[in-house]
Design a protein around this nucleic acid. Structure first.
Lengths: 211, 211
DNA sequence: CCTACCGATCGGTAGG
DNA sequence: CCTACCGATCGGTAGG
């Protein structure tokens, strides 16, 4: 599978028996199957029947777990958002070596993109399918990531480690666009160690800024 | 609108009157409207009724121009492919300055991405919705672009202009991923000259490789 | 290009 | 979680 799916979301269902809610497994399975299908066929291109059959239920039974199809998408993307937030939180601003800080940040982001390739693809493709009133709970991650990069690039410029001629916003959005595009070809289970590939990627991208 | 739509595609309709086929305009309008809707709502999320109403026809009337919904997608993406092919054809291999050649290539590709942002977004999102037997006519562009970058990077390495430690394929796919991601924020009609922004983008990306 | 229509499938619900 | 069902909409067609 692809990426951890921590639960604890509202699903309008009450835990019934003792000793570990039994159908949490079902819920996780539903999310995993939905993730796989949304990635390959897109949100609009995936029917509730597609999902239910892959899970082994009847279509209507899915509504025991959700209220609407969009709930599946929301839960998948909320999980991605929550798992990714750590990366930004770990960034140290005001370091004396902002370039190293930026390199660490990019490296982590690339590894994250590789490990969460499916959910990231769904985010990039179908975020707009999340009902408008729920979108703010998945605050458009891209902007946060870009803003973080902007701050570090600014610090690098002020430290004389990056040419001030370069437009910070352009540099940052290009950088993060490159980072998120890696999900399309990174293979976390592939022959090459993902941490090593990520370091290589970060190196190339940071070189472009630091020179 | 966004990008030129040269026609001359099969559409199962015969020119009737003299002096310039009158409903070629309609056909172009249909493609333009489809491009706009496919970009914002996705191929699967756009209905034939959405398109027909935006054009000002009834749904069934669209089938005077096409045989299936997929024909619209195919024509849009075939047009993108044809328009983009020039960029690769203009690349000079075996130059004595492969880095400059790579910079020119990347600059052109970025400008193209900006000018064809809508169609590129559709390509990246819904290429897989093109019927399998027609996909080869839009030979997965990405691969051609990546291969072209690979060749130029190899030449740069052999000329001692890029460290040989760097994996060529990784460098090339990262580079082209960054290039194609620019369609999301480039504004060809915006305040800044797109050629200038493209040069800036190319500079940053090439710096990462040449260093 | 419209009229009038097709079967299939869509997301979703009531009631158990 | 199943049974049985809903109205709405889907892509597409015949015939003019």
């Amino acid at each position: 599978m692809n990426a951890p799916q921590i639960v604890k979301q509202t699903r309008g269902r009450s835990q019934h028996t003792s000793s570990g809610a039994p159908s949490d497994e079902r819920w996780i399975q539903i999310l995993d199957v939905s993730t796989e299908l949304f990635r390959t066929k897109g949100f609009a291109g995936t029917s509730m029947r597609d999902i239910s059959e892959a899970v082994g239920l009847l279509k209507g039974s899915l509504y025991y777990y959700i209220e609407a199809k969009e709930d599946l998408l929301f839960n998948i993307l909320k999980g991605l958002h929550d798992d990714g937030e750590t990366i930004i939180e770990e960034v140290q601003f005001g370091s004396d070596d902002p370039i190293s800080e930026l390199r660490n940040y990019v490296t982590k982001a690339v590894i994250f993109a590789g490990r969460n390739a499916k959910r990231l693809a769904i985010f990039l493709r179908d975020f707009q399918c999340v009902p408008a009133d729920k979108r703010s709970q998945i605050i458009s991650e891209r902007e946060m990531y870009v803003r973080t990069a902007e701050k570090l690039i600014e610090e690098a410029q002020q430290a004389g480690l990056s040419p001030e001629s370069r437009d910070v916003h352009t540099a940052a959005i290009l950088l993060m666009g490159a980072v998120s595009s890696t999900h399309e070809w990174l293979q976390p289970e592939g022959p090459r160690d993902i941490a090593q590939v990520a370091a290589e990627v970060a190196d190339q991208l940071i070189n472009g800024i630091a020179s």
